[in-house]
């Protein structure tokens, strides 16, 4: 059935919904951080989430990092062709990895793996009344579910990014050495020549925000889930889309501030 929609009313409702949801996320963030002082007592919950978000994501991050490094080496070589000496390839690739590729690609992988899984897990809990059951036992779902996930996301993404950066650099070196004929000394001399700590730390600094936002959006979307299994599926997709978009928007904002 085609609905006869008033475009002004439709647009107005969309804007109100957006502002209302933004307000809800801000309130969730504030409440999530209000329970951080209790994390000492809730450390088991935090460690479980750190394991889930961190160590369980490591194999995926290693694979993505390795291929990202390899493809960025090919890309740089293709752009350098006939213009710049390949002896500078290590520098170009490493800076791209440390400043952008490592942090952003790791964050997007985590948005897919962790953000969506948080939304699905909490969404299932919501539609099966498990969130209400927590409340009925006098347990705050924000303290019990949101705070450990958001803090674990904030802490673990920088660590995963360090792994991704190192593995990506190795991937780039493999391509440079085996396919482009650049020796180990030339490649790593080039990396060192233009190496700035600020590049690495600036990239890692961004990931604290990426990790926190990804987990926060996962929790928010999960807790708003309705309509049974179909709703859970929609929430997973929505959590990924929102967190991946937020990672890219935040990346731009933070890049302009840091670099």
């Amino acid at each position: 059935m085609v609905k006869n929609r008033n475009p002004v009313r439709f647009l107005g409702r969309k804007i109100v919904n957006f502002l209302s949801e933004f307000g809800e996320i801000s309130r969730l963030l504030e409440r999530t951080f209000s329970f951080v002082p209790r994390l000492g007592r809730d450390r088991i919950l935090l460690f479980n989430q750190m394991a889930h978000i961190g160590s369980n994501s490591l194999p995926l991050v290693v694979i993505i990092g390795f291929f990202t490094g390899m493809v960025s080496a090919w890309q740089a070589a293709s752009q350098f062709k006939g213009l710049i000496s390949l002896s500078l390839l290590g520098s170009a690739v490493s800076r791209a990895i440390f400043m952008e590729l490592g942090p952003v690609l790791t964050a997007i992988v985590i948005a897919g793996r962790v953000g969506a899984s948080i939304a699905a897990e909490l969404g299932t809990m919501k539609v099966t009344e498990q969130i209400d059951a927590l409340e009925s036992l006098g347990i705050s779902p924000v303290r019990y579910l949101s705070t450990p996930r958001v803090v674990a996301g904030t802490l673990m993404l920088p660590i995963l990014t360090i792994f991704a950066n190192v593995i990506a650099l190795i991937g780039a070196f493999v391509v440079a050495n085996f396919f482009l004929g650049i020796s180990e000394k030339v490649f790593f001399d080039s990396v060192k020549r233009f190496f700035h700590l600020k590049d690495v730390f600036g990239g890692l600094f961004k990931t604290f925000f990426f990790g926190g936002v990804t987990a926060l959006i996962g929790v928010h979307v999960g807790l708003r889930t309705t309509s049974g299994a179909e709703g859970v599926g929609k929430s997973s997709v929505r959590a990924f889309v929102l967190s991946a978009s937020m990672v890219l928007i935040l990346d731009y904002v933070l890049w302009t501030i840091i670099f």
């Binding site: 009344e129 498990q130 059951a133 009925s136 006098g138 347990i139």
Partner: peptide
């Protein structure tokens, strides 16, 4: 207030329609 509400809820037992056990 939240703490008053949670304290009250601890005095109320609730059997949910679906049992709502934490899976």
């Amino acid at each position: 207030k939240e703490d008053v509400l949670y304290a009250l809820r601890r005095r109320i037992g609730f059997l949910f329609q679906s049992a709502a056990l934490f899976d």
